[in-house]
Design a binder for these strands. Structure first.
Lengths: 243, 243
DNA sequence: TAGACCGAAAATGTATACAATATCATTTGG
DNA sequence: CCAAATGATATTGTATACATTTTCGGTCTA
């Protein structure tokens, strides 16, 4: 039992998020509090708390007459979410360049980038899980560069939305052409962002971070346009409406 | 009784927000659920819901050992909040310019700007309340220009934080020098943003909206540096820590 | 047959009782 | 005299009972 330490709220949050992401609730229907609570093994109280949080995150939406349902997103919504993440990460990068970054943080970030290099360049082939882990970690560190709780919060918020997180729509099974090369391209952008920050080039750092976020949009477009059959493998895509 | 229609949750939200903003809870102390619930005339359940929402908004923060307290913000936090709002509003303005805006929305926004002109130019003097109302309305309409629920949400989020809203730190009683002139300056910026959007100049619209947000920072700096005594009149400043 | 009305059932919203935990003053040992 | 342990008290976290509203199927009428 790995969850003996978790509070009921935490358990409800994890379980509900996982159910929503896996597409367990068919579209538009209000999800029943008692049913879900029983399924997750908690009472309604912590489950309702968890629902409130997911509503705040944007994963669920309230129904006027009560309760809530799974939110669906249009293709334009996804594109917007990715663009907004780029804008906010760009702001973080610019702030970091303008204010300077703590040496330890910089060192940690560079170490993570080295780990990404290893994941990509491994002779036995791509270590995809390692890439995703360290990529997420790098973006997390970037959010801490400006030492601003508010910018950190905003980035965390956007990243919680599975549609906008840096690793969304990355799937090694989807047959994206030149997949490894696209990861190397992303890694070159990581290095360029770090360089701009180190050189105190705020405008450049902001532009690079914005451009970097657009990679997610490219992957999303490929997954939904060229390979619609494989999208079941990508968590989050169940939330995307067809329009 | 204007609140006979409100749900208990709405009542708790309104009351709690008002208590927090008025500085009723002294710094750092955990606010007692039973005490506040009794004061507001609701039970703990809707009050806890309201607390959760204010935590999500950033007005309250959780305590590790349970419960929550009023969040305080440093001067740097305020500056960051205003900058982030500028960045997001700038993104909305750019999106609006790139995508084009519904004619009715444009017309509504221009009508609101005309009302601001009247509030400023009135021969009997400034109609401050009208200015604040219509200014908030203009920014709200701007957030709707891109027809993007996500960008609208983000702006709404930042605006809910009283530290970053477009009318924060505007106070006619604070003796800001050339106060009316500063409002006219802001209004000229409003018009310029609208013009850039109409001309489909995305980059310019973004830059103008960012610059416009900086007016709030100027006012904040004046209120806290030059006129610390008068800051009691400005809601939200009670949340600002002295450091 | 279509549509509105009505009532039973079930859902959400709210209050409260109970359990687990944190807090704080007191005591006790060094 | 100070510090750690301890237990009473109070607070939050959780479950559940109750109230109110919504939902939905059936029935009646035009």
């Amino acid at each position: 039992m790995t969850d003996r330490n978790l509070s009921q709220l935490d358990r409800a949050l994890l379980g509900l998020r996982s159910l929503v992401m896996s597409g367990a609730f068919s579209g538009g229907q209000r999800l029943s509090e008692v049913a879900v609570a029983n399924q997750l093994g908690t009472s309604r109280t912590p489950l309702r708390q968890a629902m409130d949080r997911l509503v705040a995150e944007g994963l669920l939406e309230r129904i006027e007459t009560g309760g809530c349902r799974v939110a669906t997103f249009t293709r334009q919504d996804i594109a917007d979410a990715i663009e907004i993440r780029g804008v906010i990460e760009g702001t973080a990068a610019r702030m970091a360049a303008e204010r300077g970054v703590d040496a330890n943080l910089l060192e940690s970030a560079n170490a993570v980038l080295d780990l990404i290099d290893i994941a990509i360049a491994h002779p036995d082939g791509l270590d995809f899980d390692s890439y995703v882990t360290h990529n997420a970690r790098f973006h997390q560190l970037l959010a801490e560069f400006p030492r601003s709780p508010l910018i950190r919060r905003e980035i965390e918020r956007m990243t919680l939305l599975p549609l906008a997180s840096p690793s969304s729509f990355l799937s090694e099974q989807a047959g994206i052409p030149d997949f490894i090369e696209s990861l190397r391209h992303a890694q070159r952008q990581h290095r360029a962002i770090m360089e701009a920050i180190a050189n105190r080039e705020g405008t450049r750092a902001e532009a690079l971070a914005r451009e970097h976020a657009r990679l997610a949009l490219i992957n999303f477009n490929y997954l939904t346009e060229a390979q619609p059959i494989l999208t079941k493998n990508v968590p989050g895509l169940a939330l995307v409406s067809s329009t």
